[in-house]
Each structure stands twice: as structure tokens, then as C-alpha cells.
Amino acid sequence: MKPRLILFVFMFIIWMFLGWNINTHNVIAGLLVAGVITLVMGNLFASTPHYFGHGTKYLWFLWYVPVFAWECLKANIDVGRRILSPSLPINPGIIKVRTTIKSDIGLTILANSVTLTPGTLCVDMDIEKGFLYIHCIDVGSYDMDKYALGIVDKFERILKKIFY
């Protein structure tokens, strides 16, 4: 019951944001739409409801957003410079990076963050062995023996606090 309630409240808040004014029509329509979505989706959205009660996880997520934005800005400028320079200084390749995150949602967020950062693109992952296959526009800073990439470590350190 609890996962459904979380999904219901979440969907209702999104609906109220989209409609923006609080009147009777809007609230009734929002309750109906959120109810139908909750019936269809079931407990797919929040499979571990007890984690929603941990306050420190939200704080770590609030810290994760500026860290991610800063990395993103740096990578954007770097890739923009590469595209604009006449000699096109790229050194692409698909590399293998080790990760210690185990949970599905944590791996998803990590792969999505890596893909959103320009210059790195997650191609596939090996969940059992804990490897991410990442296409990099410049593999220069990659250490072949350690299977480590700086940007993944930075995200991983914070994501391990939020998920496990």
C-alpha cells in the first residue's frame, strides 16, 4: 500500500504544478488522473518505500545536483572547444569502468548522469561483475589497469550515500 501512496502523492503534485491554480475542477481531475496512474503502475515506482523516510538522503541528493551541474558545465566547455577547433582533437573509444554500486536505481542514475555529461556516453553495463562500458570522446585520462575514470568516481561517491 505504501508504494502506491507515494506514487499517488507524487503524481498529484506534478499535476498541480502543470495546472498551477488550485480550484475544484483542477483538484478533482488531478485526483482522478493520479488514481488511474497509481492503479496502472502499481508499486513499480517506489519498490523500497522505507528509503523515502531517510532525511539525510535528500540532503545528499541536494549536494549531488550542484556537483553534477559543475561537472556538466566543465565537460560542455571542453567538448565545445574540441568541436570548434579546426583539427578536431578527439581520441574516442569504448572503455570499461568498475563500479561498486549494486542497486538497480543507483546504477540507473549513475549511467544516466554519465550519459548526460558531454564527452561520456554509457553504452552498456555488466550488472553481475559491476562494469560500465562507456564511450569517451577522449580516452586520454583513462587508467587501463585500474578501470577508473575520474568523473565516475565523483558521482559514485555521492550516489553510494543515497542508494546502496
Binding site: 558545465l73 560542455n76 578527439i90 574516442p92 548526460l116 555529461t117 564527452g119 556516453l121
Partner: peptide, 21 residues
């Protein structure tokens, strides 16, 4: 970047770059 970069994977970098910033 979508025009200049060589292959499919590198062009995907250009598109994700578009989105974020």
C-alpha cells in the same frame, strides 16, 4: 558537432551536449 564529428557514437555526444547546457 553533429555535422563535424566522424561516427555515430561521437555524434551522440553532440546531441547529449545540446540537451544539458
Amino acid at each position: 558537432g553533429l555535422i563535424r564529428l566522424p561516427d555515430a557514437y561521437n555524434r551522440l555526444h553532440a546531441t547529449t551536449k545540446c540537451i544539458t547546457l
